[in-house]
Design a protein around this nucleic acid. Structure first.
Length: 118
DNA sequence: AAAGTGACTTGTA
DNA sequence: TTACAAGCCACTT
């Protein structure tokens, strides 16, 4: 029998989940937290993305707040970058706002399991 | 050590 | 709909 895999840390679970978000779709910090087994820890997700190694090249831009709005202040470089990245994959962004019902990611368990890093 | 901050969310008003 | 308070908690002052 093979040994059990090393369990992923909370931050690693967040990175894995964000990495699974398909191009052209979005989800929220709170949803990612819930999926990672960290209910009520939306802020932890934002920190995890900020600390994520660039080598992972995570699609961090596909994570917005619960109102479907880009979390960065409108007059900042990251706000403009996120807007550009989302538009480049076909997501309509107006004044930093996105229609969640139109672009929401609806993950299926099979895809998630097959995407697990072990 | 204590207070402030933030890439958040939810409940109330 | 907008606004504000709590809850959240690691990190920075």
């Amino acid at each position: 029998m093979s040994d059990n895999p090393e369990p992923l840390s909370p931050m690693q679970r967040i990175w894995w989940i964000v990495g699974m978000i398909p191009s052209g779709t979005i989800t929220s910090y709170g949803k990612v937290a819930d999926m990672a087994g960290l209910p009520g820890r939306a802020r932890y997700v934002s920190r995890a993305l900020k600390l994520a190694p660039t080598e992972l090249s995570l699609p961090w831009h596909r994570v917005v707040n619960a109102q479907g709005k880009i979390a960065f202040a409108a007059d900042t470089a990251p706000f403009r970058e996120q807007t550009q990245l989302l538009r480049s994959e076909g997501v309509m962004v107006n004044q930093g706002k996105i229609n969640r019902s139109e672009y929401e990611w609806h993950p299926d368990i099979a895809t998630l399991v097959l995407g697990m890093p072990f």
